[in-house]
Design a protein around this nucleic acid. Structure first.
Lengths: 363, 363
DNA sequence: CGGTCTGCGGAAAGCGCTTTCCGCAGCCTA
DNA sequence: TAGGCTGCGGAAAGCGCTTTCCGCAGACCG
């Protein structure tokens, strides 16, 4: 109505009296000046403070905000406010479906609580993981969630725990998913039990010689799942010689080449367990390329039950983990309760989803 | 050596003289106090300022940082420093492989430039997209990258452009991927040409009746790709009646149900083009479930060439877009050059990758 | 031996916001 | 009509950091 800028075009002249040129963002002071109120009042209107403000002033402020397209500077707000708003998550790689699912759960709960989620990809690099902890701490996040396998690396574990503890000291909350060796609340999937169950499934189908395509040795997820398979083997009076466990990198291509090695070195194998679905998919691809029928000649099983498991041919037998729920629970813990309480641990179950890729061994 | 805390345990007593209790983060002032230097000097040491500082003081500061596990408050730094460090990205959904690939490219270049990437998922909700623009603006990011299809929605486009323009006014850089209707530099994939090429491929195999499983009507990506298919049809003297274009939601399940509808309504169809790979995979699944051989009875083609395309059976013929490179180029533009320059547009090519899912129509 | 540099540490002024505290009106009550 | 409330706006003090500017020494020169 009375503004010098009748249309919505960005006002060039007025911003930040210092300088004169409009470069640089519009500040609260600009808004206050234009609305002819104090910054205090402008702030109150904008943030919906409980303190009452007269209708007229309120309207003037809102008008000014609109005209100037004002957006508060989050850094300044973060500094001035006491409470933390964002939450940080460190995963190996969000674009990996495993983490995508977990992240979905984290995201949902975070959003429900009005929190902003900052996602960091460590790409399985411990050094980067350490850096990200520092970064998130610097960002003053309210909580840090660490998802994905831990490492068999004492020095690293000690260091990251020290950092996490320092973070907790300063009032932050830590929760972890699938890492039992850390500070903080934990959501632990039944990796070992899952390994046991899938091997059990294969032994019961009649297989005698199971081969395993494992992930990197340094990851606890690898060793946990492997331990379960070993246990099942023992229960059935079978051995799992080292020769029949090949380590790879949890990638599709790694699964393919490992299949080649495994079958070359141990031709007696009639069933392959890959410790994640990506590698299982790679195994399937290699077997198809080499005209080895699945499950006719060789059975294949994966781990995680990613969406792709039901799209490959044959559809993939695998171990299902409730990934989204795990994320949701980790975030719930991260956002609930005081910082000081005994460490909570929630365990989640694994179940076998039998599909087409597993069957009895060839007669 | 002379610190009161000989071991690495977190020092509880000293932080932030105000209060006495150690709750709350360690500040630069704490570090300075412990090192017996001024905050200015501490800051210089920590940030590796160009200004020389005597070796002894430097060592004392570093020691204090170590002892106190000090991490600078990023908000305070953001406020005090002039230059912006983070870069924002708005995508539909990072866990969608299409965006995962793009994000990988964005990430790489951002990291090369020492920038932190803030990723926001809009889940194809225009309102959320608007919110995120504000949020990123509030975070004072150096650049905003908008990836993923635009919307056929004039009001929305106008509003988001207004916001983006305001952001540019204040010195921010905007670049977009696959959206031609926006403010800012753009990386534009050859969506229309890709559509033309894939249809061309099918017509040349001898197909006469092509059906299309399209994405949501409101997305420009959908209409662009469709336009290319229409053009190819016209070039071959063929029509593409509305009946043979069914709209879905770019999801796997949407692809499956759309296949059912399409073949029910238009049994003459011998080739199906899905406008992304997820829907193509869904189509494949439906066809397999209904014992319709691919490509024997029906050919199927996708779009994007996501990794899964070579894992399904039969492997999927599709249109490849250099997604990672698109991300990298968008980020390069976002981080290069001054804010004031003519809008740059970079176009990237699409090529057909013929695999097993397409072949001649049944005789 | 006085004067001018130069080298380096510290004081202090912000960055943009929130929030406490103060004070001015206008109102009610006695 | 005086005194005390209450309601609401503004002044100002930080939040934790960076960075400019100043000043003190010691080095060097004439």
């Amino acid at each position: 109505m009375d503004g010098p800028e009748p249309d919505a075009g960005p006002p060039a002249g007025e911003a930040s009296a210092r300088g004169g040129i409009a470069r640089g963002a519009v500040t609260l002071a600009d808004v206050a000046r234009r609305a002819k109120v104090s910054p205090a009042t402008a702030s109150r209107v904008i943030n919906g403070s409980t303190k009452p403000v007269a209708e007229e002033l309120r309207a003037r402020v809102l008008r000014a905000v609109e005209d100037l397209r004002y957006v508060p500077n989050a850094h300044a707000q973060g500094l001035a406010r006491s409470h933390r708003i964002a939450v940080g998550v460190i995963v190996h790689d969000v674009s990996d479906p495993y983490f995508a699912e977990i992240t979905r759960g984290l995201q949902r709960v975070a959003t429900e609580h009005g929190r902003l989620l900052v996602i960091c990809n460590s790409y399985r690099d411990p050094a980067r993981e350490l850096e990200y902890v520092e970064l998130l701490r610097a960002q003053q996040v309210a909580a840090i969630v660490l998802a994905g396998s831990g490492y068999h690396d004492v020095a690293f574990t000690k260091e990251i725990n020290a950092k996490l503890r320092a973070y907790q000291q300063s009032g932050g909350h830590v929760s972890v998913i699938g890492r039992h060796e850390h500070v903080g609340d934990a959501v632990l999937p039944a990796n070992e039990e899952g390994g046991r169950l899938i091997a059990e499934h294969l032994y019961e189908l009649g297989h005698k010689h199971i081969g395993v395509i494992a992930g990197p040795k340094v990851l606890t997820t690898t060793t946990d799942r492997l331990a379960g398979i070993r246990r099942a083997a023992k229960d059935h009076g079978r051995a799992l010689p080292a020769r029949r466990v090949v380590h790879s990198d949890f990638s599709r291509d790694g699964g393919a080449t490992s299949t080649a090695h495994l079958l070359h070195d141990s031709p007696e194998v009639t069933a392959i367990v890959a410790l994640n679905d990506s590698m299982a998919v790679g195994a399937l691809a290699w077997l198809r390329a080499h005209k080895i029928s699945v499950p006719g000649q060789v059975s294949v099983a994966g781990f995680d039950d990613m969406p792709v498991a039901s799209d490959v041919t044959p559809t993939l037998t695998t171990v299902r983990l409730p990934l989204t729920e795990m994320g949701a629970r980790a975030m719930s813990m991260a956002l609930s309760g005081s910082a000081i309480h005994p460490t909570r641990i929630e365990r989640v179950e694994a179940i076998v989803v039998a599909r087409e890729s597993s069957g009895p061994p060839p007669a």
